[in-house]
């Protein structure tokens, strides 16, 4: 499988990554190299093996749970510390209206 340039453009748009026309052939080559490696993995026979939902075998690490207790919050200044812009305790972003 290999990606054509239109698909690379679409994937970039979905990921909000701006690609210039000059970048396109390089990125296309990199993505196709990754797909080539995935194809190698697909050569492995997984007949009868349950698909894994994560990095650990099923049951090896049950999902940890927390109790329904409030332990966080009240740190608006820390949450906003890296915001490029703020108004009061709101994040401020360029106007987005549909």
């Amino acid at each position: 499988m290999s990606l054509d340039q239109a698909t690379v453009r679409r994937v970039a748009a979905l990921a909000r990554i701006r690609l210039s026309d000059a970048d396109l052939p390089r990125v296309q080559g990199e993505l196709n190299a990754i797909l080539g490696w995935i194809e190698q993995l697909q050569a492995v026979d997984t007949e009868g093996v349950e698909p894994m939902a994560g990095g650990a075998p099923e049951g090896a690490a049950p999902m940890p749970m927390r109790e329904d207790v409030v332990t966080e919050g009240g740190i608006a200044d820390l949450i906003l510390a890296n915001a490029p812009d703020r108004e009061g305790d709101y994040f401020a972003v360029p106007k987005v209206v549909e």
């Binding site: 207790v69 332990t71 919050g73 009240g74 820390l78 949450i79 305790d89």
Partner: peptide
């Protein structure tokens, strides 16, 4: 619920902006 689905920040309605936010939620 008192706390959020994946963090310990509170869920109450009408609080001051960004006062009920953990680093996970942000």
């Amino acid at each position: 619920s008192r706390a959020k689905l994946f963090s310990g920040a509170p869920t109450a309605f009408g609080a001051e902006p960004n006062s009920q936010v953990s680093f996970v939620d942000a």
